[in-house]
């Protein structure tokens, strides 16, 4: 069974992150602004020679909340560190930092595998559904995924399932031109489920091995739009049993605590398999992913780190934390 669902091979241009100690320069560099932000401040806090008094814990709380981890996750983390400190006092702030990193890493690792689970190219078509609220960068993420898959030797075809937003189809087509892949689209305003149904058939007919489905952005609180998305998923399932192989939720790194509500609602409605954390090149920190990891156990699978096609990296928890803390 697992033979058919091996972790999708990373493109050859990417270094194998599990085997090398150095993180790819691009992730390191693009996270620099996130780093300089409040995670930088967290680090600064640990580099001081101060005692671990109430002031220290208060300040740590502030830094974590500023990084959008949320009051609850932050409270849990600090409580855990304090109880560790009570059992076996940390020598200095540096020791507390290591403990915090270990806790954060545990949070990220309890979510399961961050790789993609796609059928091998020779075993049939891989179908990926990309969803999220408005403006998080779904279409751009699809363009970057296309580039990523091409690097791995796949031949993607895109389906323009966002038939609602003005010019969304054109936006996807422009990316299709830039990456040299076909975009299957119908007229604006068409029923997205039928676009997807026909699109999968057409993609199979044209010999694609990978299909990326763009969907209209929708607020997770809009019942009718969530029903529409459920229908799209049902249609994918019916058109191609076993699909979608991945349902990726795109989350803007600037999102605050509402990110948790988004993840919850989308997961409940259509079964999210992983997150794409977009726009990490801004000074936003995306700390809500820790809350999402804690509560929903959803793995982050990719991070978006810029505006170019290459600016998408497979998520690696060690590397991510390394980049945030060094």
């Amino acid at each position: 069974m697992m033979r058919f669902f091996r972790r999708a091979a990373p493109p050859p241009s990417e270094p194998d992150t599990s085997a090398t100690e150095a993180a790819p320069a691009s992730v390191e560099a693009s996270l620099s602004s996130t780093r300089k932000g409040f995670f930088g401040a967290v680090r600064g806090l640990f580099q001081t020679q101060r005692s671990l008094d109430d002031g220290f814990w208060d300040e740590l709380e502030e830094r974590l909340i500023q990084a959008d981890l949320g009051a609850h996750t932050t409270g849990d983390l600090i409580e855990e560190l304090q109880s560790q400190h009570a059992r076996l006092p940390f020598q200095d702030p540096k020791a507390a930092e290591l403990a915090l990193r270990a806790e954060l890493l545990t949070l990220l690792k309890t979510t399961g595998d961050t790789g993609l689970f796609l059928p091998d190219v020779q075993d049939g078509i891989a179908i990926i559904l990309v969803i999220g609220v408005n403006g998080v960068g779904k279409t751009t993420s699809i363009a970057k995924l296309t580039h990523y898959f091409q690097g791995g030797g796949r031949h993607p075809i895109l389906i323009a399932g966002d038939t609602f937003r003005a010019a969304a189809i054109d936006q996807l087509k422009i990316w299709g031109d830039r990456t040299g892949v076909m975009v299957i689209a119908q007229a604006p305003g068409s029923d997205p489920a039928s676009v997807v149904f026909d699109g999968i058939g057409a993609a199979v007919g044209r010999g694609a091995d990978t299909v990326l489905i763009d969907t209209a952005g929708r607020l997770h609180t809009k019942i009718n739009l969530m029903e529409e998305l459920k229908k799209v998923r049902r249609v994918v399932e019916r058109r191609h049993p076993g699909a979608p192989h991945e349902t990726l939720l795109v989350l803007d790194a600037i999102t605050g605590q509402n990110g948790l509500m988004q993840a919850k609602s989308f997961a409940h409605a259509v079964g999210v398999t992983g997150l794409i954390l977009s726009k990490l090149d801004s000074s936003a920190k995306g700390g809500v992913v820790f809350a999402i990891a804690q509560e929903l156990k959803l793995p982050i699978k990719f991070i978006g780190t810029g505006e170019r096609l290459e600016d998408l990296s497979p998520f690696d928890p060690d590397e991510f934390l390394h980049a945030l803390f060094t």
Binding site: G37, I65, Q66, D68, G135, I254, Q257, G259, S282, S283
Partner: peptide, 27 residues
């Protein structure tokens, strides 16, 4: 309206450079 803690810094930078006169809060 979904923006997290970073909202202050974003607003501050835009305000410093451009002198904002108001906010449209979306979503």
């Amino acid at each position: 309206a979904m923006t997290g803690q970073e909202a202050v810094n974003v607003a501050q930078v835009f305000h410093d450079k451009l002198g904002l006169t108001g906010l449209i809060l979306t979503q």
